[in-house]
């Protein structure tokens, strides 16, 4: 295929991608550095919009709180999916007959819209009519039948655990694929030398899984920083109850579309830029560390 024909083939995709993805992504950042009056763009603002995020209400209270929730979301998800997810993948490994069926079942909730998942668990956990609390009462755990989503102390953890429940099939699948790539001879050799199953896993298999764990961590980080639909379904755009399920994306949404502040475009774009820097910086740093590790184990 010559160059001219090739470019003709690429043009429709390039036009679509350029207009609806690249152009908005690039302008998104420029918005943050201008003064805004409603939808009218004023002069160059430098870092003024960014400093507003650090000095002005409601950002001074909402931003650190939302950021903390995003971080907790990431840490909580990592802890659960790397313990339960890895254990499940490890137990599934070598169960040739049932593995595919079980992996498929674990992946089912992943298909469902986060909005549906949020409303479903809101209903399941409802204190008035709620199968979960009804069940807890029936088996004699009345003291556990709490208004899980109404209490600011527990609501965030419900959001995090429900999210893990929805997504766990993904790490199970990726860890499963990675385990399949670990040469059988290695763990066999360890076992011949008298290592127990657990020792073999810790000393032989786990180090070889680090690249997969790294991939999952980077994707989880991006996912946790962008959390929007699930918390929206649980606590609305204000992170009810009492801001306990607020996240940066919700704060961004409120600032951009609900606040009515005259410079809403400027400050919300600054927030989006900040979030992008955090996501990109975090993902980039993690990938760099991983590359170095991969080099070490392959050399």
């Amino acid at each position: 295929m010559n160059r001219r024909t090739g470019l003709l083939f690429v043009t429709p995709a390039l036009a679509l991608f350029g207009v609806f993805v690249l152009y908005p992504m690039v302008t998104a950042f420029s918005y943050a550095f201008y003064e805004w009056q409603g939808t009218a763009r004023g002069g160059w603002a430098g870092l003024e919009n960014f400093s507003a995020l650090l000095t002005r209400a409601p950002f001074t209270t909402d931003l650190p709180r939302a950021l903390l929730h995003n971080v907790l979301f990431f840490v909580g998800t990592m802890l659960v999916q790397n313990t339960i997810g890895l254990t499940v993948a490890f137990l599934l490994h070598r169960r040739a007959r049932t593995r595919r069926a079980l992996q498929t079942l674990y992946a089912m909730p992943y298909l469902v819209s986060p909005i549906v998942i949020g409303y479903l668990w809101t209903l399941l956990l409802s204190p008035t009519f709620g199968p979960v609390n009804t069940l807890l009462t029936k088996v004699g755990l009345e003291s556990w039948a709490l208004p899980w989503l109404g209490d600011p102390d527990t609501a965030l953890w419900v959001v995090i655990l429900v999210s893990v429940w929805q997504w766990i099939g993904f790490p199970v699948l990726l860890y499963g694929a990675a385990l399949g790539g670990v040469p059988e001879e290695l763990s066999e050799a360890a076992r011949v030398d008298g290592a127990s199953n657990l020792q073999t896993f810790r000393r032989v298999t786990l180090p070889l899984l680090v690249p997969a764990i790294g991939t999952v961590s980077v994707l989880t980080f991006i996912f946790a920083m962008e959390a929007f639909a699930l918390p929206y379904a649980f606590g609305g755009s204000t992170g009810n109850p009492a801001g306990s399920t607020d996240f940066i994306s919700l704060l961004f949404y409120r600032t951009a579309f609900d606040s009515g502040a005259p410079d809403a475009i400027g400050t919300s774009s600054a927030l989006a830029t900040l979030l992008f820097v955090v996501i990109f910086g975090g993902a980039y740093a993690a990938t760099a560390v991983l590359r170095r590790h991969e080099k070490r184990i392959t050399s």
């Binding site: 090739g6 152009y23 908005p24 992504m25 998104a28 918005y31 994306s249 961004f252």
Partner: peptide, 29 residues
């Protein structure tokens, strides 16, 4: 199939979009 260097460049341009958090561009969109 393209052998010209411009295709390598275009390919990396497209692939850069794999990780772009497009939802953050909602205002310009």
């Amino acid at each position: 199939r393209g052998r010209s260097r411009i295709f390598r460049w275009l390919e990396s341009l497209f692939l850069s979009g794999l990780m772009l958090p497009i939802h953050l561009a909602i205002l310009p969109i």
